[in-house]
């Protein structure tokens, strides 16, 4: 397993890819998120940590407007992707989600072949004009998700036949196939065994070269291993946000310290 690699990080200052200001989220009458401000840098892994039910997944789903698919959910505040308000009525959530991809907690490959799973996004967005181009996108995506070697001989077999870790990497391949700018990951390793987790974590580190990655995780070790920035959520509030090394070694807020040392959560 990877050790805590806090010191190896080279923290170049990247430009801000997504910016959230004063975001509130309500489920019916209950407020799930209270005035959250976060900056997500380009080509950086940002981790959201916090105890269960603290709203980190809810906030993640605001970033690609997946909360729109829940009837009772209401989002206010300002979230910008490259300076553009994503909740502006002129923005089509469908196009937004092509730019902000998402990987879920439980691997959810479609009951189709591995090839069709990856080709799904490029097909609906018309990214390929012919079969050769599509083949190329599929191969490139599977390579980026580090599953090409395992999948190349069985592209026509159902994606549901893969192991859990392979399925999750297939889902990552599916998400990167549409060439997103930001990749959201909602506890991508919580359904995986330690070896598959290590593979996915390694992959996340590689994905950082091309995308801005936001990952929700329950594992503080994981946050420390893969992220450069960490945000700590507690009871719907953003308690602390900063460099991962600083959050883990020198937290400013007592709640953060309590959580990291295992006293709350």
């Amino acid at each position: 397993m990877n050790d805590m690699r806090l010191t190896e990080r080279n923290m170049t200052d990247q430009k801000i890819k997504m910016q959230a200001r004063g975001v509130d989220v309500f489920y019916g009458d209950t407020q799930a998120i209270k005035t959250v401000d976060v900056d997500i840098q380009d080509k950086t892994v940002t981790a959201f940590i916090g105890p269960s039910g603290c709203g980190k997944s809810t906030f993640l789903r605001c970033l690609n407007r997946m909360n729109d698919t829940i009837d009772v959910c209401r989002v206010t505040g300002d979230i910008r992707l490259d300076e553009e308000d994503i909740y502006d009525p002129r923005v089509d959530p469908v196009q937004l989600r092509a730019k902000v991809g998402m990987v879920f907690q439980k691997p959810n490959p479609f009951p189709k072949s591995i090839y069709d799973n990856v080709a799904y996004g490029p097909r609906i967005h018309g990214l390929a004009t012919n079969k050769a181009e599509l083949d190329e996108i599929v191969e490139k995506s599977l390579r980026r998700a580090a599953i090409w070697d395992e999948a190349k001989d069985r592209l026509d077999q159902p994606g549901t036949g893969l192991s859990g870790g392979q399925q999750q990497r297939l889902c990552i391949a599916r998400a990167v196939a549409t060439n997103p700018e930001v990749l959201l990951m909602d506890e991508p390793c919580s359904a995986l065994d330690p070896i598959a987790t290590a593979q996915v974590e390694e992959l996340i580190d590689e994905l950082r070269e091309r995308f801005s990655v936001v990952i929700v995780t329950h594992s503080m070790q994981q946050a420390a291993r893969v992220s450069q920035k960490t945000a700590f959520f507690h009871l719907g509030e953003l308690v602390e946000f900063g460099e991962t090394s600083q959050i883990f070694t020198n937290p400013q807020d007592t709640r953060t310290e309590s959580y990291i040392t295992g006293r709350i959560g």
Binding site: T69, Q95, R97, F104, P111, Y120
Partner: peptide, 21 residues
């Protein structure tokens, strides 16, 4: 499973495409 629907919507498929495909 709702996860399949979410997966498709998260890629940027419309509800119609999600239903059909």
């Amino acid at each position: 499973p709702r996860a399949l629907r979410d997966g498709s919507l998260a890629i940027g498929a419309t509800r119609g495409e999600t239903m059909l495909k």
